[in-house]
Structures are given as C-alpha cells and as structure tokens.
Write a protein that binds this DNA or RNA. Sequence first.
DNA 1: CGTATTATCCTCGATGATCGAGCATAAAAG
DNA 2: CTTTTATGCTCGATCATCGAGGATAATACG
Lengths: 395, 395
Amino acid sequence: MTRARDARWPGALGVLGEVRRTPGVTRAEAARRLGLGSGSATEITARLRALNLLDEVPAPVVGRGRPTTCLRPHPEGPLVAVVEVRYEGWRCALSAIDGRPSTVVARRHGHRDARKVVREIAAALGDLRRRHGHRLRAVSVSVAGAVRHGRLVQATTIGWDAVDLSEILPDDSVPLLIGNDATLAGLAEARGGAAVGAGTVLHLTVEVGLGGVLVVGGLPVTGASGAGGEYGHLPFGDRSRRCLCGALGCWDNEVDGRALARHLDAPPPDDPYAYALEVLARTDRDDEAADAVRRVARALASGIAGLVNAHDPEVVTLGGLAPLIRAAAEAEFDAAYLDGLMTFRRADPIPLRPAALGEDGALIGAAAAGLDLVLSETGLNDWVAELEQSTDRQL
Amino acid sequence: MTRARDARWPGALGVLGEVRRTPGVTRAEAARRLGLGSGSATEITARLRALNLLDEVPAPVVGRGRPTTCLRPHPEGPLVAVVEVRYEGWRCALSAIDGRPSTVVARRHGHRDARKVVREIAAALGDLRRRHGHRLRAVSVSVAGAVRHGRLVQATTIGWDAVDLSEILPDDSVPLLIGNDATLAGLAEARGGAAVGAGTVLHLTVEVGLGGVLVVGGLPVTGASGAGGEYGHLPFGDRSRRCLCGALGCWDNEVDGRALARHLDAPPPDDPYAYALEVLARTDRDDEAADAVRRVARALASGIAGLVNAHDPEVVTLGGLAPLIRAAAEAEFDAAYLDGLMTFRRADPIPLRPAALGEDGALIGAAAAGLDLVLSETGLNDWVAELEQSTDRQL
DNA sequence: CGTATTATCCTCGATGATCGAGCATAAAAG
DNA sequence: CTTTTATGCTCGATCATCGAGGATAATACG
C-alpha cells in the first residue's frame, strides 16, 4: 500500500483552503472559485470525505436548482491544539480545519515560575492527546515574547528568560509550533480579520511594548529564525535609553504604559498594560494624562508612518492599546502620521484600521499556523498514513 | 489549435528555473535537482527545444559515463530589454533567459530634462524592438527613485518630479516593468549575488540617501503599490529635520554625502555621492573627515541593527557607499551595530556582507524581474501563441 | 584493441488527475 | 404536473509524470 506515500493533493488543497477561508462554503461555490468542473469537485470531495477530512451536509436551500452541500470539517477529522501564553495567564483551545478555536482550558498564572507554567500546559496537552489520539495533528503556541527557531528567547514582558517551550510536549510525535503573539494576531487579521483580501498587511499591536508583523500574500514575514516582526526594537526612540531587550532607543519604550508613566513622572508600573488603560481612561479630566497620551500617540504614529514608507502595506491593522491611544489623541495621532509620510503618500494615506479579532487574534492565528502545517502536502500524507494504520489495526 | 491556450508548464518551469539559477547546467544535473526521472527530463527538454526556449549543446566530458548536454538559452529564444536610469546617465541592455544582461547602449545625461531622457530611451528601445521583433518579451526598468504602480513618483536624487516612464514604450504590446534600483539590486544579490541561498535577505544601499529591500524566498517584498523598501524614510534620524521626501527625521539624511557635509559644516554638495567618496578617501589624513565618517557609520549601523531586530534576515548585503563607510570606520560601525541588536542576537550576529554584483546589481535584478514575467505560465503561453502565429504566417 | 564500467538518454506502458459532455437529480416557479 | 434552474454524477479522453528496461557514448583497464 505505497499509494498513500505518493499521494499528491492537486485540487484537494484548494478545496480545503476554501473551507478554511470560508467555513461553511457550499461545494458548488468552492468549485466555482477554484475553477473546477463539477466532475473534479465530486471526485475531490468524495476523496476528502473518505479520508475523514471533510463532511458534507445539505445546504440551506436558497432558490431553485438542485440543492448543494456545505463543506465542513469532518467530525473525526484532524485537530490542532492551540495555546496562548500571556502575561497574566494561559489558555488552550482546539481547532478543527475551519480554524475556529474553541477554548478548552484557561488558567491564570503568577507568571513567576516558567517551569511550573510549562508543566501545567503539558498536562493540559497530554489530556487532549489522550482524548483525541491521532486526530491531534499539531500544537501551535502563541507566546508574548521573542521567538527563535521555535524557542522563546526573550520574554521581558512576562518576566521570563529564555524558556524551552518544547517541553510542553513529551516527545516529537506531534509537531510543535511556537509563534510570537503579535505575529500570530497579525496573521489572523490578514487572513480573516480587519485586513482580509489585502496582499500586504502591516499589523502592529501595543500591549507591553510593541509587536507586529508584515503579512505578504497571507504568509507572515517571520525572517530566518522566526524572530521577525520585532518592530518595537527599531530605534525610533531616545537613543540614550537602553531597552530591556538590550538595544538602544527602542520604539518599544515610547508607546506603552511605561512611556506614559515616564511622561507623568510616575514610577515604572507593575502592570504597564493596566496602567495604560487607567491613564487612557482619565484623559478627559486629567490634562497631564492627556498630554502624556498625546506624546505617546505622536511617537506611535510617526513610527507607523515610517513603517508605511518602508513597507508600503495596503492596510495597517492596529491591535491592543494602539486603537485606544489613537482614539484618545486622534488629532495628534493623525497629524504625526501624515507628517511622517513621504509626500506622495499624503494624498491618499494608507488606512489604519483597528484589529477586528480583538483578544482572540493570537489564538486564531496560532490555529491558522498549525493548519498550514496540517493541511500541507506532507501533513496530509501523514494523516493518510496514520488513517491506514488505524484501519489496518481494526481489521 | 487551442492546445497552446491550455498549455500548462509542469516541470518545464522548474527546468527553466534551473537554467536561470545556474546558466549552463547540464541536463542530468537539472533533472537530479528537480527530482525528475530521465524520461521526464527528455520530454521536457525536447518540448522546450521545440519551442525555442532552450538549446542543448554537448557538455564538456568530465569522467566516464555517457556525456550529457548543457542547457542554454535558445539563440532564437525570448529576450528581455533592461534599462537602468541613474543620476548621471542611463544604459540599456539585453538579456536572454539566463538573466545575464549585456549592455547595448549607454549614455550620460545632464539629468535636467526628464522628457528628453525618456525620448532617448524610447528610441533605443524602438531600435531593439525592430531588431528582435517578437523575441523581445518585456522591458524592465531600474530607476533611482520611488516607484509606485509602475510609475516613478519621486526621484529627488535625480532631481525629477513624478515622471510617467510608461512613455518609453509607444504601446503596451510589450509589458513594461518599473522598479526601484535598490530593490532590483537586492533582488539580484538574493538570487545570484552575495546572498544566494538565503531565505530572507535584507539589502541596503547608500548612494544619495539610502534604499533597500527585503527579499523573502527570492521575491522582493515590494508592498501593495511597489513602493516598498524605502528604508531611507524610516525616522531613525533627527526628528526636527524635514527630508526632501516630505517626512520628518528620515534615516536618508544621516548616512550619505549630505550628512557628511553637515558634519563638516560644508554646504550641501551638488553630487553627494562623489562628495562622500572624496571625504572617505581622505579620512586617513583628515581627522574631521574621519570623525564625520564615524558619525555616519554609527547612524548607518544602528539603523541596520534595528532592521535586523525587526526583520530577522539571514544575511544583510550592503551596496553603494555602505561597505566603504563600514570599512572606513569599522570599529564604530561594528560597535554601533552590536549595540543596536537585541541581546539574544549578540552572540551570533547576522553577517553584513558587501554586495557582490557591484554596479551591475540593478541591471541584473531588472533582468530577473523581467524574466519572472516572461518565464511564468502566462508568459510562456503568450510566447507559444506568438510562435504559432509566426509559423502560420510562414506557411 | 577490446571489454568492462559508468552515467546518461530514450522508449514505452502504467498511473492518476483533470476536464467536459451528457445525463440524472432535486428543488422552486408557473 | 410540467418547466426551469442549478447542481451532482458517470465516463471516456487527455496529458504529465514515473519507472523499468534497453540503448548509447564516453572512460578505464587489461
């Protein structure tokens, strides 16, 4: 039975892609978008159904004509476990091939002991593996820190040093992906959020520091080792200030709660995100707060303008505190943005849009990254091989 | 004969790609790299030969075994005209599908009257079209200025305003590509220069101002309208200085001959490139010049470090004055580079390499961009259609 | 000089995916 | 109940690739 080894996936990848892009597409619509004949559509969907990859249910009737079916993830189909590690806690979710993660476990942590958190997550993932067996095809982790070669190398936000997150899985029988939270959120915005359809998307998010990613053609530009998108460590800021990351003049330090605290002559806040929210909330009655927010807004907007000059995105999506900062000091923000643009861009400036997926962006992006792997040629070959083994076992 | 319309190019694109990557590859070697069987190789090369796309000549014998053939551009194969418009003049070259342009015309211009230059280039291209007829499949132009939607929108370096370069061709029977010179040089370095083999390459070049591009997987990240790569207009510089581009604090103004002149309290030079060369040449006997170069080196290196943080390239290639500035102030340059890197990057910093293609980078890159079009599925379909028409005419 | 070795090329039948024509089917519209 | 419309299914034709087997053209060696 070497057939499966050689299996190629012409057409099938396209159909699965349509299901991901538009969960619940009808078979007819998917075929139309892919330019497939009805014959090919029949064959492809039949094969995918036989492989437990797709399920077809009668579509709601809309007009006359023979009713078609809706394509959905198969109830016994592959799953991706997604984990989000944040400042204040972590959560774990499961996603079928439609890329819609549903939360399974969420827990707060004291963010002191990285090893303890790793053990907790490992337990949750072990549970999922026991429950879903071979259906669990990948684990995709979003983490608030710099990631390199699948390892967390710097997480000043959480207060962790380099942590080897590969220990959340006992072995490498399931592929493990580690991604930066801002990168994954940007991926999600580009694929199915505020920037759907745009070819080049710049996503920037301010939480503690600033992160982001450039997404080109639906793929994040993550660089050679996966550490791309650390826009917060561009030297847009004060060159005499050393960042926690080790570099000088990082933008990171000019746009978040720590910057607000400095402008207000307050001590560095314990939780800069909460602090920023608090300052933002009182700008209408506190002139000093409003002034600090204006300074931060200018620093943020002029940097964004520079990145627009450099990258020429079709749209910029803003996550985390960024839309709030803009809203709180819109005039200063927009003026600084325009002032930082090259002249030829001023007539029709690139739109800055608030992120559409909010808190779930990173989780959805992690699911997308995991599914990219599972629904690739090799991923599907593995799935088929596993499927044949398990049917062999049953015979 | 609708066959040609439907022609797909499985395998053939791969073989043509190998010929581009390694001009003069043997057929056996190409098949090996592509994982093709000898049967497929025979069929594909035979088809490409019949279509005037490839020529096969006996390969020099190396050992025993049946001798193979070398794959080369067909003598009647498709051509790309490449044009480079620079500060001091322009030149025009022709490239076969091996992507090695050979110069045809070169002329200096007073860079005053853009329309006159456009007419001169149009004449040269008209000449090429008359001589080569349908073999000329694309015109690819490299220009020292910001390009958007195939138009030159800002060329402060040359001293031109927005110029519609589409007038260098009388009609649109041949596709016209316009690209920024630094972008194209970076493309060339990534494909066949100092960064061959690297997946993510950052190319930066200093001439008058600074340009560059990020090349990912052999494709330049040029953004939504083609204006990507204007790294010179990131606000790494003095926020109180307005750049000619219209933005504030551009890096552009800190790294070239104009910056050197400022540091030396000299008036803005007419030809900042020549001025920079002159200053660089006298650093060994002129302390003030050496000091100015050190300041520029620091500004350049710290910006590069920021971009390395943000993009995580595998290698950075430096063109134009950049390697000279680095060489003239190596200690300051390297210290500033390291100081601008995030801590985890310091142990094994991304290498900065001088560009390998020198003056010809942009021209070679333009040829590459043109060939990407010509050797695409649609480009080859067009070629076949044209070929059939001309044989029909002869019958 | 002739044979062995080596590496490649060519031929040919098998495989598998797609396509399109023709027919079957399932709904609404009349 | 028939017509209209949209879709699904079947089946043969086409085409690229693959792999096995044999042919070919060079060197190496006796």
